[in-house]
Design a protein around this nucleic acid. Structure first.
Lengths: 231, 231
DNA sequence: CTTGATTGCGAACGGTGATCGCAATTCCAG
DNA sequence: CTGGAATTGCGATCACCGTTCGCAATCAAG
């Protein structure tokens, strides 16, 4: 009785030959779930809620999806469909950077995505298409296959982590609550107490910032350069 | 009515002046939770379960911790206490690498940690001590404070992501179930179907591998070098 | 002592993911 | 055209979750 693997969704035909035709579809369900997550966060995406939104009974959803995890898998692959894979005929680094930038804006559109990508692998067709495209960009590079996979994985992780940082420094979604001091009340006290002197110094430095887009671009570029990917 | 901030645990005194002396302690509770998580995964850490383990009623735990999230915060800071911060008087890159390697082995000891670190910030005293230590290593580097923070955050993210990759390619914890083909049954079919040619090629390449430790070291080193941290 | 804050906790609330059994529907074989 | 088989929708239900409430028991201070 093996615990269920969420990626099995992709192995199961959406609809079998006989029986009454389904009133709903994986796509419709995923879309509804997506809308809920975009507006109220991933936590609001419950089986019952999605079912109600789509106009179905709670138990009915399990005809389309074997588990809540599978629903999430559907959602992840759905947004992965927002990538555009036209080959811009550039050098490897440029093509990968392009993919990373697309990823970043997708995660901006769907704030629930970044944590998920950091946490679990997605193996849907669109996600695989992304992977394949990234590896295609690396084709001219002379590196063993697994090393290339590592590089793509790391680039994706850096992207997600960067976006996660961005998002947690911004107004949370949903009905706004009083802003309870961003850095956390507890932190400022600890800093004033004189512990963590280097931290205090680092946070005292003026933000300088510059363009966030540039910061992202250079974070990715730095990594790729270090990994030996030619410009 | 602001939603509760988990980092408030650190602002609250463990025990107030009057009243009967508590039968338990934050530390004991965190330790119990930790043991459960190490053995059965984070999902097994429920309020009821921890309470029972510690020999208390479920509702009693809320005298020590305001929410489940706070419990997790406690757990994260507890394991952050496993870092060793002796200054080895090295160059910045070496010191940061040392911290990253310690982080990696901590995450190996506590497989539930990596996803959490990627997902939410931890602000407990031990976690702050880590941050401060990393920034201390960066003291000789001439960079604006926020940039240094970025670098540390990215290094930590890369570390967590790397470990996450390692862990998902290994036998899952808990009572073993039949190994249902690591890469996912669905994947091999898609690959054989000829879609995703580059992916297929990359996975066909012999693993070469080499030492995983070396892979990690060079991943971190690459990033730091790209970010301009001197050896 | 008395007083008042604080602890432990049984019971309960509202929510969750998931399963089961059954009526209704639809397709295919004959 | 008809009868059987497979499949869908789903109400009811289970086990569990985080969390709150109210109250008896406990302890420190005045």
């Amino acid at each position: 009785m093996p615990a269920h693997d969420p990626t099995d969704v992709w192995r199961r035909p959406e609809r079998s030959a006989v029986g009454p035709k389904p009133e709903h579809s994986r796509n419709g369900i995923a879309t509804a779930a997506l809308r809920i997550a975009d507006q109220e966060g991933l936590a609001a995406v419950s089986i019952r809620r999605v079912a109600a939104t789509v106009g179905a009974g709670a138990a009915s959803l399990y005809r389309y999806v074997k588990s809540h995890d599978e629903l999430v898998e559907l959602m992840m692959d759905a947004v992965a469909g927002e990538y555009q894979f036209e080959v811009v005929g550039e050098h490897p680094r440029g093509r990968l950077l392009n993919l990373a930038q697309q990823g970043r804006s997708i995660m901006h559109r769907h704030p629930w995505l970044a944590p998920l990508l950091l946490t679990r692998p997605s193996m849907g067709p669109n996600s695989l298409r992304f992977l394949d495209s990234a590896l295609a960009a690396l084709a001219p590079v002379d590196l063993p296959g697994p090393a290339k996979l590592q590089i793509v994985a790391m680039m994706s992780a850096i992207t997600s982590a960067f976006v996660q940082n961005e998002l947690s420094s911004l107004p949370p979604a949903g009905p706004d609550e009083g802003s309870p001091a961003r850095p956390g009340q507890h932190l400022v006290e600890a800093l004033q107490a004189g512990e963590y002197p280097h931290l205090a110094a680092a946070m005292a430095g003026h933000s300088a910032a510059g363009n966030v887009d540039e910061q992202f671009t250079s974070a990715i570029t730095n990594y790729l350069a270090g990994a030996g990917i030619p410009a």
